[in-house]
């Protein structure tokens, strides 16, 4: 961890998408990512894909983490992905978790969504994944001069 001390902090938007009204899981993830050294923007319940993408762009985040337990993942992930593309913001890592069947996970990953984590995933696994993925993306974009 010492080698990252001078690095710009990784910013992550954690959002609870869809209509289900419990956000305990999202809050636990948000606090865990904070403890891993990330700057976590938590936006609360019932966020629409439009709200999520607007907040992500204003906050200039490296990563969006969506928590979805309502079964709407096949609607919400593709929509967020599509909105990011529409704003030329595919550089933002889109990841998340919830109760998502394996077949849907594969379909979403094929679409270009990042890794999706099931219940009970150790937080270190999530934060390691985000850190590695964001570093790779930052390296790639600074190489092209943007």
């Amino acid at each position: 961890m010492n080698d990252v001390s001078s690095e710009r902090p990784i910013r992550v938007l954690v959002a609870k998408a869809g209509l289900d009204g419990h956000d305990r899981g999202a809050k636990v993830v948000a606090a865990g990512l904070r403890d891993a050294g990330f700057e976590v923007i938590y936006t609360g319940l019932r966020q629409t894909p439009e709200m999520i993408v607007e907040a992500a762009l204003q906050e200039d985040v490296d990563c969006i983490g969506l928590s979805i337990h309502s079964g709407a993942h096949m609607t919400i992930f593709p929509r967020v992905h599509e909105l990011l593309a529409a704003h030329a913001a595919e550089g933002i890592l889109l990841t998340g978790g919830g109760i998502i069947p394996a077949a849907d996970v594969r379909a979403l990953e094929d679409l270009g969504v990042g890794r999706l984590f099931g219940p009970g995933t150790p937080l270190a696994e999530v934060s390691d994944y985000i850190r590695e993925e964001v570093r790779a993306r930052r390296g790639a974009s600074s190489g092209t001069g943007s």
Partner: peptide, 29 residues
């Protein structure tokens, strides 16, 4: 910011949801 981890939990947007979708309001944490 946590002085221990260097991380931060920025939650002020939670109370500002009603301003979403308005290009004339820009919020940054």
């Amino acid at each position: 910011t946590s002085p221990f981890s260097g991380g931060a939990l920025l939650g002020d947007r939670i109370r500002m949801g009603a301003l979403a979708g308005d290009a004339n309001v820009f919020i940054r944490s």
